[in-house]
C-alpha cells in the first residue's frame, strides 16, 4: 500500500523464525502430553502452549500487532464471550442437585 498509512510489511525471515518457534512448541506439547504425562494438569499445560501458539499466529502471521485498537477489541471480545459461555454454563451444569 502507498504512503498514506503506517502499513507494516513483515520481512520473510520473521515468518520462518515464527514457524520454527511454532514447530518447537508443537514438539513440546506432544512430548509433554505423551512422555511426561502430568496427569491432571495435562489439560492446563496443553492449553497454555496452544494459547501461546495461537497468540503468536495472531500477532505475526495475522499482523494483529500492527492493527488499530478497534481491531483488537473485536478480536478479543469474542474470546471473552466464549469464556462467558463456557463459564456460566458450567456454573449451571456442575452445581445441579441430582435427586
Amino acid at each position: 500500500m502507498s504512503e498514506n498509512h503506517d502499513e507494516h510489511i513483515t520481512p520473510y525471515k520473521t515468518y520462518v523464525i515464527i514457524w520454527l518457534i511454532l514447530m518447537a512448541l508443537t514438539v513440546i506439547t506432544v512430548y509433554v502430553a505423551r512422555e511426561i504425562d502430568l496427569g491432571s494438569i495435562n489439560l492446563f499445560v496443553a492449553m497454555i502452549i496452544a494459547s501461546i501458539k495461537a497468540t503468536i499466529v495472531a500477532l505475526f502471521f495475522m499482523h494483529l500487532k500492527y492493527e488499530d485498537s478497534i481491531t483488537w477489541v473485536f478480536a478479543l471480545y469474542p474470546l471473552f464471550l466464549l469464556s462467558l459461555l463456557i463459564g456460566l454454563t458450567s456454573i449451571d451444569v456442575f452445581n445441579r442437585i441430582v435427586p
Partner: peptide
C-alpha cells in the same frame, strides 16, 4: 480487513459452541 476480523469473531463463536460442549462433557 476490518470486516474480515469481525467475521473471524463470528467464526470463533461458531466453533465456540463446540468448545463449550467439549469443556462440559470432558469435565
Amino acid at each position: 480487513k476490518f470486516g474480515m476480523w469481525l467475521f473471524l469473531g463470528t467464526e470463533i463463536l461458531l466453533f465456540g459452541g463446540l468448545f463449550a460442549t467439549y469443556a462440559i462433557f470432558r469435565a
